[in-house]
């Protein structure tokens, strides 16, 4: 093959790979533009604060779904973050033994379990014995989804803390547990906060595990053992309905959801960046 031909092949392959970038960007741009353009029309103060109204009545909103989503995710974080972060610290501190390897492998495998399957599990654990759907069941399902990612993320962050720092602390006569908590985990904390915020953002976007755990609710929910509305389930129900009004509501709700998720993700990244800069 001549050199010119080889050069041409090389350029052509580069162009093809660049095309892949365009192909990946296309759906992203289209999706974001549509959610913004179709969703913005329905946004109003009422939309964010009112209960949904039946088809045919104008006005109304998804206030209960927003509050529902936030409270289910808050409850899930309350369970998931301590366990996930704790498991991560365990893996970083004693993850090289046989038990550690087993737990790490299990966490990796768990992070691939489909979220709908976790929904069935929470159904079996909570809905069946309690005889009704509840926010609690949904929160437990979401926390199960958070734990493995948090554990692996925390482990990597804690492992990044230099061993010399740990030694410096131990050499000062500071006990193991204080060294681990106040020196090692403390040093990794900004990263852990970022990981936790991203996990919360992911949980906020989950639908499948809520379908038959938290179910839905046309009204405000006041207790964690009641069926509770969520933005994602609301979007799903509205989208597959035959009514244009509900479709419009789905787009607006999707915009609200994307803004919440985006806020959390941007917050997480900003936090990470600020902390990194503060330490220079």
């Amino acid at each position: 093959m001549s050199l010119a031909r080889r050069r041409f092949t090389s350029r052509a392959m580069t162009a093809l790979c660049g095309l892949a970038l365009l192909l990946a960007l296309l759906p992203l741009v289209s999706l974001l533009m549509l959610v913004i353009s179709r969703g913005a029309a329905g946004l109003s103060f009422d939309f964010l604060t009112q209960l949904p109204r039946p088809v045919g009545e104008s006005g109304g909103g998804v206030g209960n779904a927003i509050v529902g989503s936030l409270s289910i995710v808050a409850l899930a974080s309350l369970i998931g973050i301590p366990v996930g972060v704790g498991a991560g610290v365990y893996l970083a501190e004693n993850g090289d033994g046989r038990a550690g390897k087993l737990i790490r492998f299990t966490a990796e495998v768990l992070s691939g379990v489909p979220s709908i399957v976790v929904g069935i599990v929470a159904y079996g654990l909570f809905v069946v014995p309690m005889h009704h759907f509840s926010a609690l069941a949904g929160a437990v399902a979401l926390s199960v989804l958070m734990i493995p990612t948090l554990a692996r993320g925390t482990e990597e962050l804690v492992r990044l803390v230099p061993r010399t720092l740990r030694e410096a602390s131990l050499a000062l006569g500071i006990p193991e547990w204080k060294t681990a908590l106040r020196v090692v985990v403390r040093t990794a904390l900004p990263g852990i906060v970022t990981t936790a915020l991203l996990a919360i953002a992911r949980a906020l976007g989950e639908t499948a595990p809520l379908l038959f755990t938290a179910l839905n609710n046309q009204y405000w929910s006041h207790r964690p053992d009641e069926p509770t509305a969520s933005l994602t389930v609301q979007i799903f129900n509205d989208a597959v309905s035959p009514y244009d009004e509900l479709h419009a509501r789905a787009w607006s709700a999707a915009l609200v959801l994307l803004m919440l998720v985006g806020l959390l993700s941007i917050g997480a990244r900003l936090f990470a960046r600020l902390r990194a800069r503060g330490q220079r």
């Binding site: 230099p162 720092l165 602390s169 050499a171 000062l172 006569g173 040093t187 904390l189 330490q279």
Partner: peptide, 20 residues
């Protein structure tokens, strides 16, 4: 050992102040 390390201080090869 924790008591001992309060009586026997140590300085390491590379400076390792607590970064936080």
């Amino acid at each position: 050992p924790v008591d001992l390390r309060r009586r026997v201080g140590m300085v390491f090869q590379r400076p390792n102040p607590f970064p936080t």
